[in-house]
Simulated assay, not measured.
Amino acid sequence: MYKRILVPTDGSDITGKAVQTAISLAKVTGASLATVSVKEPFPYSAISEMQPVPPQEFYDAQERIAAERVKAVVNEANAAGLNCDGYTVEALHPWEAILDQAKQQGCDLIVMASHGRRGVTALLLGSETNRVLTHSPLPVLVVK
Rank of each mutant, 00 (worst) to 15 (best):
R64Q: 15
Q101A: 13
P52H: 02
M50I: 06
L92P: 07
A77Q: 02
K39A: 15
L109A: 08
S12K: 06
R69F: 01
A46R: 11
K3M: 02
N78P: 01
T129G: 05
I47V: 15
E40W: 05
P41E: 02
I23D: 06
L109S: 06
K17F: 02
A26K: 06
H93E: 15
E57L: 08
N130V: 08
G81E: 03
T129L: 03
V140Q: 11
L125K: 09
P41N: 11
V38L: 07
L33G: 10
Q51M: 11
D85V: 13
N78W: 00
A97F: 02
L25H: 09
T29W: 00
T129S: 08
R4K: 15
F58I: 08
H93S: 14
A34W: 00
D13E: 15
G16K: 12
P55C: 02
A122T: 10
Q101P: 00
K17Q: 13
A80I: 02
S48A: 12
D100H: 11
P43Y: 04
A91S: 13
V140N: 08
T129E: 10
A22N: 06
A61W: 05
S45V: 14
P55N: 03
A72G: 07
D108Q: 07
A46L: 15
T129M: 07
G116E: 04
L6Q: 09
N83A: 13
A122N: 12
A72L: 02
Q20S: 12
T134V: 07
R69P: 04
H115M: 02
F42D: 07
S45M: 10
V142Y: 07
A113P: 11
L123G: 06
L33I: 04
K3H: 15
V143W: 01
S32I: 04
P55R: 07
L125D: 09
T88Y: 02
V38R: 04
S127Q: 05
P41H: 03
V19F: 01
N78S: 14
D108P: 10
L141W: 03
I5H: 05
V53S: 08
R64S: 14
E49F: 08
Y87K: 15
V19N: 08
K27T: 11
C84A: 09
D108L: 01
V38C: 08
M112W: 00
T134S: 15
I98S: 08
L124W: 01
V74S: 04
P54V: 10
D60F: 00
A66W: 05
G81M: 02
S45N: 13
S114H: 03
T121C: 00
T21G: 02
L125I: 09
V38K: 05
T129Q: 04
V53P: 06
E68Q: 15
H93Q: 13
A46P: 03
V142F: 04
A31W: 02
A46W: 05
D85R: 12
H135A: 11
K17W: 03
Q104P: 00
K27F: 00
